[in-house]
Design a protein around this nucleic acid. Structure first.
Lengths: 219, 219, 219, 219
DNA sequence: GATGAATGAGTATTCATTCAT
DNA sequence: CATGAATGAATACTCATTCAT
C-alpha cells in the first residue's frame, strides 16, 4: 500500500545540545503528529509541519535529514508510548483484562485519533516497523498471547499468537473506525468492545476445530 | 470487480453512450482500482491510471472531470459490490451467519486486497461516503443490526446498531491487517475470526450493563 | 572535482513524436548549452534553462528525467560534433595538419566558447564521458596518435598515445584560456598555436630520451 | 601550501592580530583549499569548510565576511605561491628552462591537484584575478615573455607576450588534464611536455609569418 | 472523440548568512 | 570572541489539468 520509496535515511541529523534546540525538536514532533493525525500521510508536508510548529523549514531540516526520518521519529515515539501503556495492563479475569486493555488503547489514541492508523498503514517507513517481525509488533503480540494463555489455564502455545492477532486487530478496527467518526468516547461502544474481547478470552473451546464448535453450538 | 455498467454518477462528465465509450470507462476504473490497491492513495496519479489503462490522459478527463470524481466512481463500484455480496448473507444460527459473513468479506477483498482500506481510510471524497449517514454505511449497518436482533430473538432496537458497528469494525480490522501482511488466506485466522463474531452474536447478556456482566462472569 | 552524485538516470524520458515536441527538445538543448557555456555548471539551473528556452519547467522534465540527463544530452551532442569535425582533419605535412586541426577546434568552440570545458571539467556525468576509456576520448586520441605515427614515418606505437595527449591537452589549454579571455579569434594566437603543434609533430627525436635530447640541443 | 601569513586582504573582515586568530585563519584557508580541490566549486560550502577546519560557522564569518572573500583569500595565497615558485625558474638553454618550469609547475599542483583549475575556471571572483590585466597574470606572463626574448637573443617585444601565453596555456592544459586523470606524476608525460615547450622556445622562425613557415616546411 | 504536448503551482531539500547565548 | 540554532530564498522535480492538433 502507500508509497514505496527507497529508504534514503532514518536517523536524526544531529543531537540537539542546547535547551533551545531540544524544545525545537519537541515542537516539531508535536506539530508533525498533529498533521499526520488530522490530514493523513498525503497531507503531511514538511512545510506545513514547520509552519504549524512555528519554525522555519531550515530548522526542521537541521534536525531531521528528510521527511522519512521525521515520520520515523514520530512513529518511534508513538509506538513506545503504546507499548508502555500496554505493558501496564494485566489482570486476573478476562473481562477485567479486556476492560483495562480497551480503556488503555482508547486513551492512547485520544490525543491524536488518526495518528496510529496513519503511522501503521499509510506512512512509508525506512525502518521495519511495518514488518511483522519488528520489535514493536513482536512485543505487542507477545503480551496479548501471554494473557490468552493465562486465561486458558495452560502454558503458551503458538495458537495463542493467532488469538493475539485477532484481539489486537479487532480492537484496532473498532477503535480506529470510532476515531474516524469522532465517536471514540462513546461509552456504549467501549462497553460492547469490552464484551467482544471478554467473550473471546473467556471461551473454553478454543482448541476445538471451528466447524465442530460451530456445529455443536448451532445444534 | 463486477462487470455491471457504472451507473452514470452525477460526477461523471458525460454518460458513456456508445459501446466503445463504456468499455473505455470500464478499463479506466479497473486500472484505477489496481493502482489504488497496489500503491495506495499517494501513488495514485491520473497519468499512471491512464497509462495502465492504455488510454491517453485526455481521454481519462473526457469521462472524469477530475481526480476525485474518478476515485468516487471506483468507490461507488466497490461499495456496491460489497453490499450485494453482503445482502446475500443470512442464516439461522450465529455461527453459520458469522461463517458466511467472514467468507464473503474475505472474498470481497481478495481481488484488490488494499483497495477497501484505501478507499475508506486514505482517499478523500467529494461525496459523503465517509459520513456515518451515507447510504452505504446505513444500509450496511442495517443489515448487521437486523441479524443481531434476529439472533437475540426480539424486534430490532437502537442498541443493535452499536453491536452492528462492533461486528463490522472488528471484521474490518482483522481482515485489513491480514491483507497488509499478505495473510488473508490463512484458515486459522478465518476460523478464529468466525469464533470471535459467533461468540459475540450468541451471547445473551447483551442488555445487561457491562459492569454487571463483568462482575458476574468474573465471580 | 566538481559534484559527485550518485547517477540517478541518464536517458531521455520519452522520444518526442510530434514535430512540435522535437522543436521543444531542440530549443531546450540549445538554451542549456548557452547557459552552461555562459554561466558554468554552478549557474546551470533547470529553471533558468526552461526560462531561456521559453518553455515551462514541466516541459523540460517531460523530455529529460533530471538535470543530469539534460547535461548528458548536451554533452553527447557536443562531443559528437567535435568528433565529426576532427575526423575530417588529415593532411600530408605536420604544419598543414596542425593548421587544419587548430582551425577546426577553434571553430568547434566558437559557438559556445565555455561549453567544452564545462562539459569536460565541471559538469558531473552519469555516463563515462570523463572516464579515460570512454568511447569519445579513445576515438579522439586514436585519431591524433595515427597522425603522429604517420608523420614519424613508422607504424603506430604506444608512445604515440602520450604524444596525442600532449597535443590534445595543449591545444585544449590554449583554446580554452583564449575563450576565457574572449580572444579566441586572435589570428596571431592561432598562428603561434599552429607553430607549437607543428614543431612538435615535425620533430624526429621523439624516441630519444629527453635528457639526451636536451643535452644535445643545449650544447 | 606555504605557511606564510596571509596578508590581510582588503576583503578580510578583520586583521587577525593574536596568534590564536592567525592560526584559525590558517586552518580555515587550508580546509577551504582542500575542499575546493577535492570537491570543486559546487561542493564548496561554508559549513563544510568550517566543519573540516574544526571551527564553528560563526568563527568562519568572523574572519571572512562572505563566501567570496574566503575563496579570494585562498586564491591570493595560491597564486602568490605559484609566482614565487615561478620566479625562481630561469636558465641558460630553452630545454633546461622548460625542464625546470615543468617540474616547478607540476610540484605547485601536487598538493591540491584540482585547486588551480577550480580557482581559475570555476570559482567566481569579486576581484579581478581573472581579468587579463590582473597583477597576477601580468607578472606571470612578463616572466615568460622575458625568457622567450632571452632565448631569441633580442630585446623583448610585444610578440613575446603571445608566445608567453601559448607556453603558459599549453602547460596549463597538459598539467590540468593530467591532474584530472590522476596521471600528474607520469614521467613520460613530463618528458614530452618538456619537449613540446623546449622545441617551441628553441625555434628560430618565430618572426616569420606562419603561412610562410608552413609553406616552406611543408615543401 | 482521441491524443499527448504544455503548463505552473506545489513539495522536498540545501546553504549562505545572522544573531542570541 | 566562539558557538551553533535559526532563517528563508533558491533549486530540483511532480502531477493535476488544459487545449491545440
Amino acid at each position: 500500500m502507500s508509497t514505496r520509496i527507497a529508504r534514503p535515511s532514518s536517523a536524526m541529523r544531529k543531537a540537539p545540545k542546547q535547551a533551545r534546540s531540544r524544545a525545537t525538536v519537541e515542537i516539531i514532533l508535536e506539530a508533525g503528529a498533529r498533521i499526520l493525525s488530522d490530514e493523513g500521510w498525503a497531507g503531511f508536508t514538511t512545510n506545513k509541519v514547520a509552519d504549524l510548529a512555528g519554525v522555519s523549514i531550515g530548522s526542521l531540516y537541521q534536525y531531521f535529514p528528510d521527511k522519512l526520518s521525521l515520520v520515523d521519529a514520530i512513529r518511534r515515539r508513538h509506538l513506545d508510548d503504546c507499548l508502555t501503556v500496554m505493558k501496564s495492563v494485566s489482570d486476573a479475569t478476562p473481562y477485567a483484562f479486556a476492560s483495562k486493555l480497551v480503556r488503555a488503547m482508547i486513551s492512547a489514541h485520544s490525543g491524536f485519533p488518526g495518528l496510529h492508523r496513519v503511522l501503521l498503514d499509510e506512512a512509508p517507513s525506512s525502518d521495519d516497523y511495518r514488518d511483522p517481525h519488528s520489535d514493536f509488533e513482536v512485543e505487542y503480540l507477545a503480551h496479548y498471547a501471554a494473557a490468552v494463555a493465562a486465561f486458558r489455564g495452560r502454558p503458551p502455545c503458538p495458537e495463542d499468537l493467532t488469538a493475539a492477532r485477532i484481539i489486537s486487530d479487532a480492537m484496532d478496527g473498532v477503535i480506529h473506525n470510532a476515531a474516524r467518526r469522532g465517536a471514540i468516547g462513546d461509552p456504549s461502544l467501549q462497553a460492547e468492545l469490552i464484551r467482544l474481547i471478554g467473550l473471546y478470552l473467556s471461551d473454553a473451546d478454543q482448541n476445538d476445530g471451528v466447524d465442530l464448535a460451530t456445529a455443536r453450538r448451532a445444534s
